[in-house]
Design a protein around this nucleic acid. Sequence first.
DNA 1: ATCCTGCTTCGACATACGTCTATCTTGACA
DNA 2: TGTCAAGATAGACGTATGTCGAAGCAGGAT
Lengths: 129, 129
Amino acid sequence: MSKQDDEERVLTQLAEVVGCCEPLAREPLSAQQSIELARVFKAMGDPVRLRLLSLIASHVGGEACVCDLTDVFDLSGPTISHHLKVLREAGLITGERRGTWVYYRVRPELLATVSAVLVPEKAEEPRCA
Amino acid sequence: MSKQDDEERVLTQLAEVVGCCEPLAREPLSAQQSIELARVFKAMGDPVRLRLLSLIASHVGGEACVCDLTDVFDLSGPTISHHLKVLREAGLITGERRGTWVYYRVRPELLATVSAVLVPEKAEEPRCA
DNA sequence: ATCCTGCTTCGACATACGTCTATCTTGACA
DNA sequence: TGTCAAGATAGACGTATGTCGAAGCAGGAT
């Protein structure tokens, strides 16, 4: 089973279990839903990983090389690599090797799903009273 | 320093540091921003706490008694109390004692702030006054 | 006053997590 | 082929976290 498979599996499960935009305040989450969602939040629950995510998301071209990320932190290479793996396994980013370097990009659809769970109303439709 | 003060402090810091709706993908988060945000995500990074949050948010009247929450889980009272404390200290919920029982309610504005950070577009933009 | 009940705090324990150094893998290039 | 550099993996170590039972606190009821 490849890493790619793992990533896909997590993302599919989340969409499947959480539903497209079922808000957290509408009805109680099931045990299964909370497990899947918590996996993502836990991955974002570290300052270094949040910054990595932000660095990748805001980088030109929507992707960032690991070498760009390592210099920002006062941490060893393996530690950065570890955090990237956690983000990857949570389905938040994908990694692709091109030649010598590995490039990461975010999965905006997962961020959007998670974001939608938090607010009672769906954001995109103009909510006019 | 009361518990209430702690809660307020966290919420104030988050709004202050993160900004109203600065999306994560616009520009890299600062070290300080990532620390504040990660605190909230970490609190949500546990299945039990996510379910608690959801149970409280979706409960009738927007608040739930601890006694309502305890029965849902196969966990001891102290454990539930611990998780509620973590959510409280993250600024996600507030607790109020009324007579014998303690009632919790969510802070929707914090959820909205966090939600807005995740998506590239500002959610409240087409806000009709 | 005394007891009872709902909830929190305390102290202890096993496990998970973040970090490091050392080692391995992969690809480029001579 | 051999070598070098970019990342990933493995193993170790200290700390944080989730859980429990026991004890403490605060309100109501008797």
